[in-house]
């Protein structure tokens, strides 16, 4: 399951969002300043929006050009054994 994206090093390229086959990561605009709500930064950054639906395919980690996505090989999201 996806753990984190090191946003300080993120260039906002959006590849992690594009390659995700489970709609987990969304590129979203960030507020530019606290003084003026509604004003956003030019570059959007990835948000882990639906972590619980991550299928642990590692696509975001494999294709991130900056190597800043961390997917943990947790399997807790798998169907439970019967």
């Amino acid at each position: 399951m996806i753990e984190s994206i090191e946003l300080a090093k993120c260039t906002g390229c959006g590849i992690c969002d594009v390659v995700c086959p489970a709609d987990v990561i969304h590129m979203e605009p960030l507020p530019a300043t606290e003084e003026l709500p509604g004003l956003y930064k030019v570059t959007s950054l990835p948000v882990i929006k639906f972590r619980e639906h991550c299928i642990t395919c590692f696509s975001c980690e494999i294709f991130c050009p900056e190597g800043i996505v961390d997917v943990h090989p947790s399997v807790k999201n798998r169907p439970r054994p019967w």
Binding site: T56, F58, E61, V71, H72, P73, R78, P79, P81, W82
Partner: peptide, 24 residues
Amino acid sequence: NFFRKLGDEAKTDMFGKTPYYALN
């Protein structure tokens, strides 16, 4: 990537006995 992160312990598990259940 998966096994690199799980480390040596997973490799030991994998080549030991791994439990299998109805999953899929």
